[in-house]
């Protein structure tokens, strides 16, 4: 087998022709007049231009009673209370960490809104402030829940549960937030031998399923034992599957990822990223999902 593979440019295939859904939607582009009726309320993605409601982004119009919004195809993450996010620490400040969460401003994790290592419950003292960098330092990845959203769109996070906290060994995949399906739970232990955290902000964390569910460390001690080869292979395959699903714009949730993983099993892990293989396995996934819906 050759060590290198060369490809010549080929015309792009339009995948959507086979699927005739979604054509009944009202699609708009920036500057389009949505309605001249003044009885409507202006939602996201729209603005008032002399007595008319005008779209400001490209996407589908959504109407809820009198409210008209335009949902853009992809945007940065807009926080909502209760969302699960995965983020990266960018800065350690006086009483807070700044966390990059793909939102339009960095999110805040207050020292007082996290569990201390050991699960101790008390007021945070000056010593705790000094030890902040020992808990989380710049570059660390965390999973957290959105506690509050400020008026300027910035988000405040909390990690007051053993589910949340610092992330150890695993793989981060960044996708568009609009591709992550909202669900009851965003922590999944997949039967294929790995776990995923599907952050609402489009950050997806794939990691080996932990042996025993959490010691009392509160998730701040990282397990640095080498991950067995088999687990690493499963994780790599899942990563490539997620990238394939994203390339074909399929929503991400536990079932779609699992079906895609199963569809990819006949192929080598590195081959999953080839465009034709991507198309094949995602098409199979789509069909299985449609069958599931009935």
């Amino acid at each position: 087998m050759a060590a290198m593979e060369l490809r010549l440019p080929v015309p792009r295939k339009v995948v959507s022709q086979g699927l005739a859904r979604g054509s009944d939607k009202h699609l708009v582009a920036p500057g389009d007049t949505i309605t001249t009726d003044t009885g409507y309320m202006r939602g996201h993605g729209t603005y008032m231009g002399d007595e008319k409601l005008v779209a400001s982004v490209a996407g589908a119009v959504e109407r809820v009673n009198k409210l008209i919004c335009v949902k853009a195809l992809k945007t940065r993450y807009n926080g909502e209370v209760g969302d699960i996010v995965v983020g990266r620490i960018t800065e350690v400040q006086q009483k807070r960490w700044k966390v990059e969460t793909n939102a339009r401003l960095d999110s805040v994790l207050l020292l007082s809104s996290m569990n201390l290592p050991g699960g101790e419950l008390r007021r945070r003292s000056a010593e705790d402030e000094l030890a902040m960098r020992d808990y989380l330092q710049e570059g660390d990845l965390i999973s957290a829940e959105v506690q509050a959203v400020f008026s300027d769109g910035a988000v405040s996070l909390h990690t007051r549960s053993l589910k949340y906290g610092k992330l150890g060994q695993g793989v981060l995949v960044q996708v568009s937030p609009s591709l992550v399906k909202r669900q009851k739970t965003h922590f999944h232990d997949l039967p294929c031998g790995a776990s995923v955290i599907l952050g609402n902000n489009g950050f997806i964390w794939i990691y080996p399923t932990p042996e025993q569910k959490d010691e009392e460390a509160g998730g701040f001690v990282t397990n640095l034992e080498p991950v067995p080869l088999h687990d690493r292979e499963v994780i790599s395959r899942l990563r490539n599957c997620i990238l394939a699903l994203v390339a074909q714009k399929l929503m991400l949730y536990d079932t779609s990822i699992l079906y895609c993983y199963e569809a990819s099993l006949p192929h080598q892990i590195k081959d999953i990223l080839k465009p034709e293989v991507m198309q094949e396995i995602v098409l199979e996934t789509r069909h299985r999902l449609l069958e599931l819906e009935g």
């Binding site: 339009v14 995948v15 959507s16 699927l19 005739a20 859904r21 979604g22 054509s23 939607k25 699609l27 582009a29 490209a58 996407g59 589908a60 195809l73 074909q248 714009k249 399929l250 929503m251």
Partner: peptide, 15 residues
């Protein structure tokens, strides 16, 4: 170009 792109992506998303 924009409309074709939007149409293609919404069809793929097809919620």
């Amino acid at each position: 170009v924009v409309r074709e792109h939007v149409h293609e992506v919404t069809t793929l998303l097809g919620e």
